[in-house]
Structures are given as structure tokens and as C-alpha cells.
Design a protein around this nucleic acid. Structure first.
Length: 230
DNA sequence: AACAGCGTCAACCGCACTCAT
DNA sequence: TATGAGTGCGGTTGACGCTGT
């Protein structure tokens, strides 16, 4: 291994960003706005590809990027979101203001993966025996519109606040989505270590995606994403 | 002090997706 | 409808620092 490492050390160093490059990129975005990453190198002379520029901006140069260790609240939220969504890092990061998908992913792989490796896997509790029956059930119609969100004793105040924000999204979900399959889906998620179903504390997209994936409704999930978050 | 092993994190890579033409 | 450019995303890699021996 170390033999390998020494050999690798002779290879060119990874192309780390220099402060002057950061400055150039920052100036470019302030002038031209985000996007058009392919033209960055042409207009600025940066020896970087569009993808590299985009990544650097998104992960490090953007305003309001939060650096440093994760708080307990953030860690708690990451664990819970990961239980529900799996490795959907951008989605998880979207619920952590100032955090990027790359950072969340790294944090998970380095800190949380070990912590949670012993935790039970997600399981789905479905009132119906299978997906085919999902579409036939008429018992639960648009239950989400009736969901009340009492304070969850399992969540801290900060996490609870985020959860409330998520529920705001759920309202728009109910308003915009008219999907007969979704309307009749009465699935609920519970975790081995969760006394309460977590579904009522997740946002519409999370719910939608989760339903879509577990029910094999990938296409509906995609449609939902576009409809709720244009 | 020198080395080995491991952990962390920034950056890269390849695939998938979206959208304009 | 087909196609290509641009972009987003998740997995992986590699440099470097820290710690133990």
C-alpha cells in the first residue's frame, strides 16, 4: 500500500484551486451570473473546464456557504434524511442551508456512515399487499391534506422548525399535484428505531420521491419534481 | 526521527438528465 | 423525433495531515 502511495506521489498533484483562480471565477460570476460555465475559460483565461468551475463555485465560492463542522441538529437531520432517501446528497443538502451535496456526502462517508452502520434498514409498511393493490385502494384519498403536524418529541427545536418548513411545501404539493395514483397510495414509512412514522415530517418532494421509488413509480416521481419545484 | 496506517476532504470522472434546435 | 450541448448528481480518487509504533 505504502509502496503504491510513494509511486503515486510522483504523479502530478491534484489540480487544487489557487486563491487567484477563485478570485477570477468569483469576479466572472458576479459579472455574468451563474451558468454558461463552458464560456468561463474562454472569457477569463482560466485553465479549468466548465464542470470544474461550476463545482468550485457551487461548493466553495457561493455566498452563504457554511464551512466547518456540522452541528448536532444538522447531523441529526442528515441521518434521518439519509434513512429515507439514501444517497440523495443534493436533496439532503438542499435542506441544510449553506451546506453542499459534496460536503454532506463527505461528512456522511467520514463521520456518520460508521455511526449509523449498525442501525436497522428502512422498511416500508404498506397497507396494501403490493403496488398493484395501491392503485385500487380507495380508502385513503389525499390524506396529506388532512395531516396535522404536532410537535415531534423525537426532534429538537431546530429540526422541528425545519420539519415545519417542509410541511409548507406539502401544501403546495397538495395544491399542484393531481395524481390519482398518489391520492390512493396509503404507504407509510417507519424505521426500526422510530416510534413514529417519519413521513409526516418530510417535504412533498421527499414524500413524492419516496412513494415513487418504493412503489416503482419512477416516472411519476420525476413529473412530481417538475411540478412542485419548477 | 522515520515510517506505516488511517482519516479527511477537495477535486475529478462518468453517467443521466434537461432543453434547445 | 433525434441529437448535441450544458448541467446535475453520485461515486471515486488522490493529496495531505495526524497519530501510533
Amino acid at each position: 500500500m505504502m509502496e503504491n502511495k510513494r509511486v503515486k506521489k510522483q504523479l502530478p498533484k491534484k489540480n487544487l484551486w489557487k486563491p487567484e483562480e477563485d478570485l477570477i471565477l468569483k469576479n466572472y460570476v458576479e459579472t455574468h451570473g451563474e451558468g454558461n460555465w463552458q464560456t468561463v475559460s474562454k472569457l477569463t483565461g482560466l485553465k479549468r473546464g466548465g464542470k470544474s468551475c461550476r463545482l468550485r463555485w457551487k461548493n466553495y465560492l457561493r455566498p452563504n456557504i457554511k464551512r466547518g463542522g456540522m452541528s448536532q441538529e444538522e447531523e441529526d437531520l442528515i441521518i434521518r434524511m439519509h434513512k429515507l432517501l439514501g444517497n440523495r446528497w443534493s436533496l439532503i443538502a438542499g435542506r441544510l442551508p449553506g451546506r453542499t451535496d459534496n460536503e454532506v456526502k463527505n461528512y456522511w462517508n467520514t463521520h456518520l456512515n460508521k455511526k449509523t452502520s449498525a442501525v436497522g434498514k428502512r422498511k416500508r409498511v404498506n397497507n396494501n399487499s403490493d403496488h398493484q393493490n395501491d392503485t385500487k385502494s380507495t380508502e385513503t384519498t389525499n390524506k396529506t391534506s388532512e395531516i396535522q403536524d404536532p410537535p415531534n418529541p423525537m426532534l429538537s427545536s431546530e429540526t422541528q422548525k425545519i420539519s415545519n418548513d417542509l410541511m409548507d411545501d406539502t401544501k403546495s404539493f397538495n395544491y399542484k399535484i393531481e395524481n390519482p395514483i398518489m391520492a390512493t397510495n396509503s404507504s407509510t414509512f417507519v424505521f426500526d428505531d422510530e416510534p413514529l412514522p417519519i413521513i409526516t415530517y418530510m417535504d412533498s418532494f421527499v414524500c413524492f420521491e419516496a412513494f415513487g421509488h418504493t412503489a416503482g413509480l419512477e416516472n411519476h416521481a420525476k413529473i412530481g419534481r417538475q411540478s412542485v419545484f419548477p
